[in-house]
Write a protein that binds this DNA or RNA. Structure first.
Lengths: 157, 157
DNA sequence: TGGTATAACATGGTATTTCGTGGGAATCAA
DNA sequence: TTGATTCCCACGAAATACCATGTTATACCA
């Protein structure tokens, strides 16, 4: 029983000729502890693969059912896209999953896959695209510190 | 189990060739009492490593989930930056963690690591950078004493 | 108060395990 | 049968758990 489950860190693993990739061991631990599965789909906004626990997708489905005003119609459409695109992935005894051609192509992944933790979700990038993306975000944060207020009550500065 | 905790004090420990450092025993006590883990990431604003309990990051993840919608761009960028950089650290039977090259490089730490308590978080500095930073802060406080008084009143009980 | 015994801690070194990865066998589908 | 997919074994590198020692801080007693 695990009290917290966060996808963290940035980990680079190899993709072999068969499309196999080791899911980072930390991520596997989460899946095992929660007795759930990993679900992946093409990111709607970036050239990367997005993944989360099946549990989270269920929660998303429930939220949509219950709160019609919170989720706009647009977002409802988006969720349809996701559920339609999402696929369940289970790993073998050595901890590997086999990504599909569709996903790999969307993320432009060739040899190496970069797993990026996002808390409740994670993403899988090609090295090149992730380098660009990380640079973009860090630059953006430099410009607008305010968005970081969420992080917690910083003393001053 | 304790309901409140504070990372306090300034402690210097050695970093060996493998990147191992003793986590200050006070900090370890907090981790044990809360049954949580330590999470570290590169400071967004300073050349230092920042650390907190995984529990705190958990709370952050929940806050983000609730405050913005599932597909928000800001949420997307923020979570990538924070959770993608954060790494879980558990200490061995002698109380040491192994810092990564990425973190050590960012903080410019070579031989010695300076742990600085910040309440809910703490920071790890190189001796040189911390000396500069401390001088800067003390100088700043001299200029604007009033703001400090406010803080002390807050702490009164 | 002072001195000694005891425990806690930081740190160096070593052994063990885990994890990622390549290759091949087995299974399945067409 | 042939090609593709899944399962299993094996190896090397890297992470981490364990053991040992010196030093410092703490507790205890005279």
């Amino acid at each position: 029983m695990r009290k917290s489950f966060l996808f963290l860190d940035t980990i680079i693993n190899k993709v072999d000729a068969k499309g196999r990739v080791s899911l980072p061991s930390d991520y596997r631990a989460i899946v095992k502890d929660l007795s759930t599965e990993i679900v992946c789909y093409r990111s709607l906004t970036s050239p990367c693969i997005e993944g989360c626990t099946e549990e989270l997708l269920e929660k998303l489905a429930t939220d949509i059912e219950n709160s019609t005003d919170f989720f706009s119609e647009d977002q409802d459409d988006l969720t349809n896209l996701i559920f339609g695109d999402a696929k369940r992935f289970s790993f073998d005894s050595t901890g590997r999953i086999v990504l599909t051609e569709k996903l790999l192509a969307h993320a432009e992944i060739k040899d190496n896959a970069v797993f990026v933790g996002k808390g409740r979700k994670f993403q899988i990038w090609s090295e090149e695209n992730w380098a660009k993306e990380e640079a973009r975000i860090r630059e953006k944060v430099k410009q607008s510190r305010p968005s970081l207020k969420l992080k917690e009550n910083d003393n001053d500065k």
